[in-house]
């Protein structure tokens, strides 16, 4: 197990360096003066421009520039936004809100996904299964922002069940609707995955053997079928998290949730590039860390991985 963790962490290093390098490259190796590009459509005065150039070490060789940038990333030093606020501080302030929203969304997703997936997998080909299939396919096809508007319009405005925007401080009850919508954007795939792994597991020899031992159905289903199906579902959580990050940006923007995604959304809309790049960098790092954690969780769930030498 220790070796597995060590190996996984070592593998993450080149990916981490590569990913940050790639982002840096995209921003600073593009045509035109990168310092100028930072200001978008506005034209800065020469003094500010020189300041920016010095700040990003644009007078240094490319690789040195990258190393400076990397150092800044790890100190959460991303410079300041147009309004003069340190980007790192904004990040720290907004992060807990997004974490709460994401946790809530994943919780909803897992509960709905596992329950519905298990039920349709056990009754493959039945009415419930067929209806679920149709709903999942439609759900997969609806882009997240459409889903947000539908939720906002029907559940928030027409039915009045939820507030259609989130109030200051982002209390948990206001987060339920955006979290549900985020969950729904992910859940269809989760249902299908759970369903197919339940069917696959149920067809395994060891399930038959479990019955032959005299075990009751009520024990075989959770202990031998659902437990094993968790492995592929968990593995997929990593990819889900990537979609969740993008989804959070859109959802937080539309529902005005004061989180990381909303800040990114606003920065994109007003073309504030330093903030956009910093936030994307942080999200990518977060994505990498979450994926490492999920790989470790995977090892906990699957002893075959855990004991691989």
């Amino acid at each position: 197990m220790a070796f597995y963790i060590l190996r996984r962490l070592l593998q993450a290093i080149p990916v981490l360096l590569g990913a940050t390098f790639l982002i840096y490259f995209m921003v600073f190796a593009m045509p035109g003066n990168p310092a100028l590009a930072l200001f978008g459509e506005r034209t800065p005065n020469p003094a500010v421009l020189a300041q920016v150039e010095a700040r990003y070490h644009l007078d240094q060789p490319f690789i040195v520039q990258y190393l400076y940038y990397l150092g800044n990333v790890f100190r959460l030093d991303f410079g300041t936004s147009f309004s003069g606020q340190p980007i790192g501080e904004t990040l720290l302030r907004t992060f807990p809100v997004t974490a709460r929203l994401a946790a809530l969304a994943i919780l909803f997703e897992m509960i709905i996904g596992l329950a519905v997936g298990l039920w349709s997998g056990l009754r493959k080909g039945g009415v419930f299964d067929s209806v679920t299939l149709v709903i999942s396919l439609v759900l997969i096809s609806v882009p997240i922002f459409v889903l947000c508007f539908l939720g906002q319009f029907f559940l928030g405005y027409k039915l009045g069940w939820f507030r259609s925007t989130v109030s200051a401080g982002a209390p948990i009850q206001d987060l339920i609707l955006p979290a549900l919508i985020l969950a729904f954007s992910l859940v269809a795939f989760n249902i299908r995955l759970t369903r197919s792994s339940v069917i696959e597991t149920a067809g395994n020899d060891f399930v038959r053997t479990a019955y032959s031992k005299g075990l009751r159905r009520s024990r075989v289903i959770p202990v031998h079928i659902l437990r094993n199906s968790l492995i592929p579902v968990t593995t997929n959580l990593g990819a889900d998290f990537g979609i969740l990050l993008v989804g959070a940006t859109v959802t937080e923007g539309i529902f005005n949730v004061p989180g990381v995604g909303n800040t990114l959304y606003k920065a994109i809309v007003i073309g504030e590039r330093p903030t956009v790049v910093s936030f994307v960098t942080v999200m990518v790092l977060l994505y990498l860390v979450v994926n490492i954690l999920i790989d470790l969780l995977y090892a906990v769930l699957d002893p075959r991985i855990r004991y691989v030498k």
Partner: peptide
């Protein structure tokens, strides 16, 4: 009951 294939008849996660 003793099944045929010892490789697939024990649940790998327990």
């Amino acid at each position: 009951y003793v099944p045929q294939d010892p490789m697939s008849n024990l649940n790998p996660v327990w």
